[in-house]
Nucleic acid binder design. Structure first.
Length: 327
DNA sequence: TGGTATGTTCCAAA
DNA sequence: TTTTGGAACATACC
């Protein structure tokens, strides 16, 4: 269920439960998706306290507090005492004081779910009671007995521990909700290459966090066709696109994201989408039927009236080559 | 049965 | 060099 707003919603929901908690165990049921290895992640986590939970692009970032007193072998603190909020602020910025970072990427179908085993029967993931969460790929166990499950039907999700956060995030582009993301910056990104707009918006190394749903939504709000060559977008349209991106992401965060099928049930943005998944329905702006096409191998939804394809050989050539000419 | 799916990464081809 | 397409990852749903 992962795009920026959904990940942000998860982060906000989990932060209050996680900050100040201490890891007592980590178990992977799909070790291939743990980096550098499931054993290394376990070694890095056990005994560590969570200093902060935040987001970079579509990554959930858990900052681990550096306090040697609490490593395995020493006594466990009974309850998380102070330090949650104050620790979080420093933990986010000063890498030197952190014991590294746990990174979780949900990819296509990952989700986090709290689960408490029935007491006393020594149940394990292998023999959980009926009604337990499905597709559990990893378990994080905490000092209060809580168990955070990483569930992921498609097994695309990733769990990683790193001491050097930038080694993982260096390739990521600007956060679209950051102050620095302004029309001038977007214009430079668009002008510096000649690509169809939608694939460009999905490129995490340029703008980080936008996925298929919100790319479609932002382009519709801006009145731009997804195949528009990036270097042919007029300054006024760049402005519209910039605010459309920010507006749709903020809007979605406010509604806790978009709920899709069985994967992510908690948001309400799906009731307010203007084009994504609305093939054949009436455009909320002009009443025309929403049309589905294929752009860069991704399902794409547009209003043909609100988002006309700009005239010109470049755009038409791209449309034909990408197979989007149908429908 | 086949086509689809919110993501990322790799490779080949244009 | 840049951009695009395809496949791969693995599973569930319609």
């Amino acid at each position: 269920m992962p795009e920026l707003p959904e990940v942000e919603s998860v982060v906000r929901a989990q932060r209050q439960w996680l900050v100040g908690r201490r890891f007592v165990d980590f178990v992977s049921h799909w070790p291939r998706n743990a980096a550098p290895s499931a054993a290394a992640v376990r070694e890095a986590l056990v005994g560590r306290m969570v200093a902060d939970v935040w987001r970079r692009a579509k990554y959930i970032v858990v900052t681990l507090a550096e306090d040697e007193a609490a490593r395995p072998g020493s006594s466990r603190r009974p309850e998380a005492s102070a330090g949650s909020r104050s620790a979080s602020n420093s933990g986010r910025r000063s890498a030197q004081q952190s014991a590294g970072y746990l990174l979780i990427h949900l990819r296509m179908s990952g989700r986090l779910e709290w689960f408490t085993l029935p007491k006393g029967d020594g149940a394990t993931a292998a023999k959980w009671p009926a009604g337990s969460p499905a597709h559990v790929r990893a378990e994080f166990e905490f000092d209060n007995g809580g168990r955070l499950l990483f569930c992921d039907a498609r097994k695309f999700g990733r769990i990683a521990w790193t001491r050097d956060l930038t080694s993982v995030t260096a390739h990521l582009g600007v956060e679209p909700l950051d102050d620095e993301f302004r029309p001038a910056m977007l214009r430079e990104l668009l002008q510096s290459r000649s690509r169809a707009l939608k694939p460009l918006l999905l490129d995490q190394s340029l703008v980080a966090g936008i996925g298929n749903i919100y790319a479609d939504e932002a382009l519709h709000r801006a009145g731009l066709h997804p195949l528009t060559p990036s270097d042919r977008v007029e300054p006024e349209a760049v402005k519209r696109l910039c605010s459309a991106i920010r507006a749709v992401l903020r809007d979605a965060i406010r509604r806790n994201g978009t709920s899709f099928d069985w994967v992510y049930p908690s948001g309400t943005m799906q009731d307010h989408l203007r084009v994504y998944g609305r093939t054949g329905a009436a455009c909320r702006a002009c009443g025309s039927a929403i049309v589905a096409l294929r752009v860069g191998q991704r399902g794409t939804h547009i209003c043909p009236r609100c988002q006309p394809l700009p005239r010109g050989r470049a755009a038409e050539g791209r449309a034909l080559r990408s197979g989007s000419a149908r429908v």
